[in-house]
Amino acid sequence: MKSMKLVLSVAAASMLFVAGDHVARADGYGPAGCGLGAMLIGSKPGITQIFAATTNGIFGNQTFGISSGTLGCAAPPSPGVASAKNYVETNRQSFAKDVARGQGETIANLSQLAGCADQSAVAAKLQANFKTVFPTASATDTQVSNATVNLLKTDASLKCSKLI
């Protein structure tokens, strides 16, 4: 079977044609927060993206790719500050739109991770404070996530129980 596969693979090889996305780099993500940019392979779009894949950051840190996954950015195992921040950083582009629109899935998820009582109150609060959370286009992912968590934490009426 292997030799037949090999023959077919060679025939296939005039182009690299692949079913599926498949290649993740073993060295995980960079040190600067848990933003999508750090999670995706390669710092620039281009040829590396052809091979870019599901990055998960779990490999490299651990012997077993699938094991606990509590390290780093890849996992929000339970609600709390760390998982809320991770979530905001990875989902930043979508989150920014949801904040401006006062509604959306990322706000619902953030409310869950932060343990907030009422997600529409959270949405309204974030929308009213868009410029606090996203002061400039070049604010780093970490600045955005810190500002978000601080905003929710300091408003007692939101009752974000997991941020204490």
Binding site: L36, L40, G65, G69
Partner: peptide, 12 residues
């Protein structure tokens, strides 16, 4: 095999 947060897949 790896486990990845679904939101990361969705973003990607």
């Amino acid at each position: 095999f790896s486990k990845v947060p679904y939101y990361l897949q969705v973003r990607k």
